[in-house]
Design a protein around this nucleic acid. Structure first.
Lengths: 159, 159
DNA sequence: TTAGGATGATTAACAGGTTAACCATATTGA
DNA sequence: TCAATATGGTTAACCTGTTAATCATCCTAA
């Protein structure tokens, strides 16, 4: 890559690849677990948010915001959860536009089953790093994310 | 997330999120550039590999291997590149199964145009990290990737 | 009170990826 | 020699995400 385009800044270009490769590699640890449970990483995330949040209820918008996907996509994720009986969807009495998503007991059960199954893969994935290294990586990734946010192009600046 | 499932190891769980958030954030810097050029990150990667490689030629399998996607998907990526006149596809004389993909002059041109346009976003993205931090992040990510590879489940071990 | 605009959610069309089945060509060994 | 198998590539079906358009409800100001 850098061979083809020597003008690219090496350190940064390599960093992009490293991050992508890392995320890709991580997928192999968790997707199998989710698949077995009939979940997606996103649908699992939604279940967790519902469990953690206010009385197991939330709105689609809130959820899409927290998960980091579009509302349109959240609609589909919720369709699937509702269809599987893991969550319920109702219209709020005081505002007919708002929907209320609630986790069901079945949903709680599935989410609780997922937890223990994820512990081992999580630890195994990072077993090559000691606590100090994990802490450093955490710190640097946070710093990088802040950098991305700051540098994020505001839809074209001065051209 | 950790609130809902306290049994999950915090450091590792957070790390997964950080890496995903980071990669997602990175996308905002480059996808616009690729889009303007009518490229995908993957199709750009293919062009780079062709430029860097042996006489601008390679086989679909090699490319899918190097890019890290399936052969089926590479077929589609190449369809698109060939369709846009950026690469050509031919059958190898000595073995009718093998195809030879070559980058065209138009393909070289597009790839060369992409280079300069990527420099600024790349530097901007990582502008919040100094050289030492970049080096540390590089080292830790590589170590993490090695850890992922080692710990990668060999399709169920002892269950 | 009601027309115009916001807001929450869904739908439709599309993009890019995956897996599994398939086709065509080469290779091998009985 | 030729049937069985391996290999390279494509196709078909599907999954999950995105964007843009749409629907329904609510809010607001003339």
């Amino acid at each position: 890559m850098a061979e083809a385009l020597p003008e690219l800044p090496m350190a940064e270009t390599v960093m992009v690849r490293l991050m992508r490769i890392g995320v890709f590699g991580l997928g192999n640890f968790f997707e199998p677990v989710f698949r077995e449970l009939g979940l997606t990483e996103n649908s699992f995330h939604v279940l967790c948010l519902l469990m953690a949040g206010d009385q197991g209820r939330a709105s689609p918008s809130e959820l899409s915001e927290l998960v980091g996907t579009t509302r349109a996509n959240m609609t589909r994720i919720l369709d699937s959860l509702v269809n599987d009986g893991l969550a319920s969807r109702a219209i709020e009495a005081r505002d007919g536009r708002r929907h209320v998503i609630r986790i069901t007991t079945a949903g709680c059960k599935v989410a609780s089953e997922a937890g223990p199954r994820l512990v081992e893969p999580l630890k195994r994935a990072f077993s090559g790093l000691d606590a100090d290294e994990l802490a450093s990586l955490d710190r640097l990734l946070r710093k990088a994310i802040v950098s991305f946010d700051k540098g994020a192009t505001p839809l074209r600046v001065a051209a």
